[in-house]
């Protein structure tokens, strides 16, 4: 049933490496659990268990077929948008407008399915941007109109438009990236973004002293950020030849870009959570919080990686 023959050898290796890393972290956890009390490890154990589920679903999505991949990415956007809309204040009058917001997900991923690049680029920034306020105006509730229309569109931009760039990577000409093809680009982006998150977290825990933006995210430190950047540059240099068409020196710069963007994606979602007064965006991913807590960095890295790549290589 699993047809992985369309995946290149190096993509299959990358999949192996991901599960190898997960196994390794389980092993380390088992070793450490003999030294440290069980209680402090509960959260991290839960978090790793959820990583297994995330990794398995992403790989499942890539293994079957392009359509399955697109449905999976659309569903991720749906979860993220739903979580966002459940977290922010909304107006009762806007139920129908919000419905159209959800509807926009299927349309956006349809453009990707038919490989209509221009429409993919402008549909949410132009058409959804014009249509949603129009629908709101027809309902006629003017109290908090600006707030309602702008929060809805911001959510669509982050969870649908930005994240859908990850899916459009599958449309890029595989001939220019024989090593990894579309799936390789997706794996490179997701793996590097998430490893960058983890690296920034670990460097910050080990050496963190100077806070970067204490008002938004008190746990983010200069040391964590710099350590994360260095780690991501190295990882990108290591991974790029197998998964992307990047030359070694460009790969290092892409690592820098992804690390910085990941940081800003992370803190912009943090700013929203702080504004609203919640710690986690949801409860869908045990040990992590909500799906937005995991996708926050990708909302920045996906479009920036996509356009850098498109500009220089496609």
């Amino acid at each position: 049933m699993f047809d992985y023959t369309h995946l290149t050898t190096s993509v299959r290796w990358a999949i192996g490496v991901i599960f190898g890393l997960l196994l390794m972290s389980e092993l380390i956890l088992t070793l450490v659990s003999h030294l440290i009390s069980e209680k402090s490890l509960k959260e991290i154990r839960l978090r790793i268990r959820t990583w297994w589920v995330i990794a398995a679903s992403l790989l499942g999505a890539l293994i079957f077929s392009r359509v399955v991949s697109l449905v999976f990415f659309a569903f991720i956007s749906f979860l993220a948008l739903k979580e966002y809309l459940s977290m922010i204040p909304t107006r009762r009058a806007d139920r129908r407008v919000i419905f159209w917001g959800y509807f926009a997900i299927s349309v956006q991923y349809f453009w990707i399915y038919v490989d209509w690049y221009t429409m993919f680029l402008i549909f949410i920034p132009v058409y959804a941007f014009l249509f949603l306020p129009l629908r709101m105006v027809l309902i006629g509730e003017t109290k908090d109109f600006l707030k309602a229309v702008s929060t809805l569109h911001w959510g669509l931009m982050m969870t649908v438009f930005a994240l859908s760039h990850m899916a459009f990577l599958l449309n890029l000409d595989p001939g220019r990236n024989p090593a990894g093809q579309g799936a390789g680009l997706v794996l490179y982006l997701v793996l590097l973004t998430e490893l960058n998150d983890i690296a920034q977290f670990i460097w910050g825990k080990l050496f963190g002293k100077h806070k970067v933006i204490p008002k938004v995210s008190p746990n983010k430190t200069v040391e964590g950020l710099l350590g994360g950047i260095a780690t991501s540059m190295l990882l990108s240099w290591l991974m790029a030849p197998y998964l992307t068409p990047l030359q070694p020196h460009t790969a290092v710069l892409f690592g820098l870009a992804i690390s910085l963007c990941g940081f800003f994606g992370d803190v912009s979602i943090s700013a929203i959570k702080r504004d609203i007064g919640v710690k986690d965006s949801g409860n869908t991913l045990p040990g992590h919080g909500g799906v937005l807590d995991r996708l926050d960095s990708l909302t920045y890295t996906a479009p920036v990686f996509f356009h850098l790549l498109k500009y220089f290589y496609y």
């Binding site: 749906f78 459940s86 009762r92 139920r95 419905f99 959800y102």
Partner: peptide, 18 residues
């Protein structure tokens, strides 16, 4: 909480919320 937003009284259109 949330069901009143998703499908309140007098509405037939379901709008997803957590």
């Amino acid at each position: 909480h949330g069901l009143g937003k998703a499908l309140p009284r007098g509405e037939a259109l379901l709008v997803p919320f957590f």
